[in-house]
Simulated assay, not measured.
Amino acid sequence: MRALRSPSAADAGTDAGALPAPERLAAVATVLCLYPRRHRDALTGWLTSASAQRCVAEAAQAEPESILFRDAQGRACWRMYLLPDSDFLAWDLAIGGLPQHRDEPAGGRLIRACRALWHRLGGGWNAQVLRLQLAQDDAGRRILVADSATPSTLGLQRARRIAATEGALLRSEPDTCCCMARRAAEAPDSQPIASH
């Protein structure tokens, strides 16, 4: 287990909104998370995020909406996609108040060629279907916990399509507890964040 200091949303320096509360994210339950391959686990992006935006694609046939999280330097560090297995009402509550970001179309030969080069150089994203939950640590603080999830057939098809569109490697190996994170809501600069 390692401890990290939580960044504040004010450090982001972007027009993105504050982070959704961990309770709101946990209520959505099953989601597809995309995270940089350099991260140790799927919730590291949550730990390093400082702001969030609701993403809506321009094209009518585009992927479902998502939440794009950015770190304090404004770099994308985590992305959460709605799946057919997600709690849609909880999703609406989680994205309430987030500013909207319009995605550029993900297709095109040039874009695919650039992504292929990026992956060969060791960059890129992993994708994993997770079930987010809220738990308590030994000190009684609420933490966000993520276990790998087995989606429905429709959910798996959607996850595969999103991962392919985003150029992400879809991970499917089961984890009993792949990651956990705590973010202090009251005083983010004074509380540590735990992850394993």
Rank of each mutant, 00 (worst) to 15 (best):
R2E: 12
A3S: 06
R5L: 12
R5N: 08
P7R: 04
S8R: 14
S8I: 12
D11N: 11
T14N: 14
T14D: 09
D15Q: 12
A16F: 15
G17E: 09
A18V: 15
L19N: 03
A21S: 06
P22F: 09
L25D: 02
L25A: 13
V28Y: 00
A29S: 12
A29K: 09
T30E: 10
L32Y: 00
P36K: 13
R37I: 14
A42R: 04
L43I: 07
T48F: 00
S51H: 03
S51E: 03
A52S: 06
A52H: 00
Q53M: 14
C55H: 02
A59F: 01
Q61L: 11
D71N: 10
A72P: 02
A72M: 12
G74D: 10
R75A: 08
W78C: 11
M80W: 00
L83M: 13
D85C: 12
D85W: 00
F88H: 15
L89K: 07
A90H: 03
D92E: 10
D92T: 07
L93R: 08
G97N: 05
R102W: 02
D103H: 05
P105N: 12
A106L: 13
G108I: 11
L110V: 11
R112I: 06
R112V: 10
A116W: 02
W118G: 02
L121C: 13
N126C: 08
N126V: 08
N126E: 06
N126M: 13
Q128Y: 01
V129N: 01
R131F: 01
R131V: 04
L132G: 03
Q136F: 05
G140K: 11
R142E: 09
L144K: 08
A146V: 10
A146L: 04
A146N: 06
D147T: 07
S148M: 03
A149K: 01
A149T: 01
S152D: 07
T153E: 15
L154Y: 01
G155A: 08
G155C: 13
L156Q: 07
Q157D: 09
A159N: 04
R160C: 14
R160K: 12
I162E: 01
A164D: 06
A164P: 00
A164E: 14
L169E: 10
L170Y: 09
R171M: 14
S172C: 09
S172A: 09
E173S: 14
M180K: 05
A185Y: 00
D189P: 03
P192G: 09
